[in-house]
């Protein structure tokens, strides 16, 4: 029974897109998800961590996420943001109602991630794995009238993570906890990054899982790219944040389900200071 519960935990872990799962899919198994993600922000964290206002900007992304077990220990992973829409609201005079600055939007593909996960250890309820994700510069690193409507950062990065997870019982319900640390090697003058995260979830009812997640990105500030030479790009180099989020996943059938996510940065530098929302439809086969 405990084994079965562990399997369920492992099974459900793959529901959560980009959640840095520690358990491999297993040969021939796959997990696929189509998602919509939205962030609308009229304020941002400055380079010193203060919150300042900005013209309202939005980022809407439609994406496909997939994992497939090519062997018992190796999964291939891909994230394809096939439509990313970056937009800014029209600025209108309160006094006259006239347009002060026209709104603008750019629609394009975003940066695609491809990667491999390798299972290092699996013992009882504990699993250890490592993941290498390659960030491909498929998005537009300059867009719109001033170049700041970007759907990608224009650089090729490599994120290597070490992931550990454990499954257990919480109030007689299946639960899990996992953590990861990672190093993101960035190119084109961007600073390298240290990543870490924590996640914990439990099965509330027969078909519903809920989880909480904390992620952190910390810049080594060793890049040469600055605001002066990045041509108006605000959310590019030396981004730092600690974000917390909650997610719910509901199984409609044994293989098909929906998930909803709410995430916000509780501190940060050079990043929007508003929460994001996402919803998705997943298939676990």
């Amino acid at each position: 029974m405990k084994y079965l519960q562990s399997v369920i935990v492992i099974y459900v872990l793959f529901v959560f897109q980009q959640s840095d799962a520690q358990w491999n899919k297993g040969k021939g198994n796959g997990y696929y998800k189509i998602s919509a993600w939205s962030l609308v922000a009229d304020q941002h964290y400055t380079n010193i961590g203060e919150i300042d206002p900005n013209a309202t900007r939005g980022n809407f992304t439609l994406s496909l996420y997939g994992e497939y077990g090519v062997t018992k220990k190796i999964d291939v992973i891909t994230y394809i943001p096939f439509l990313t829409r970056i937009y800014q609201n029209t600025q209108v005079s309160e006094v006259t109602g006239n347009v002060l600055q026209e709104g603008e939007a750019v629609n394009a593909i975003g940066d695609i991630d491809v990667g491999l996960r390798y299972g290092l250890l699996k013992k009882n309820h504990f699993a250890l794995s490592t993941t290498l994700k390659l960030g491909l510069p498929t998005g537009k690193d300059k867009g719109g009238s001033d170049g700041s409507f970007q759907t990608g950062d224009g650089e090729f990065n490599q994120l290597l993570t070490l992931d550990a997870g454990i499954s257990y019982q919480l109030f007689s319900k299946p639960a899990y906890a996992k953590t990861y640390i990672g190093f993101n090697n960035r190119t084109q003058g961007f600073s390298d990054e240290f990543h870490y995260g924590l996640e914990s979830g439990m099965k509330l009812w027969n078909k519903l899982w809920v989880l909480a997640r904390l992620n952190s990105v910390n810049s080594f500030k060793n890049g040469t790219l600055s605001a002066q030479n990045s041509q108006g790009s605000i959310f590019a180099n030396n981004i730092e944040y600690v974000s917390v989020g909650a997610e719910a996943a509901y199984y409609i059938t044994s293989k098909l389900g929906v998930s909803f996510n709410y995430t916000g940065a509780i501190s940060g530098r050079i990043i929007y200071a508003k929460p994001s929302y996402s919803g998705g439809l997943f298939l676990d086969i």
């Binding site: 998602s35 013209a55 439609l62 609201n89 600025q91 006094v95 002060l100 603008e104």
Partner: peptide, 19 residues
């Protein structure tokens, strides 16, 4: 439905106090 949500990510208006 997702595309519909995306299309609703429309450019809206920010009211600026320019008095």
């Amino acid at each position: 439905l997702l595309f519909f949500i995306g299309l609703n990510s429309c450019i809206q208006e920010d009211i600026v106090n320019d008095r």
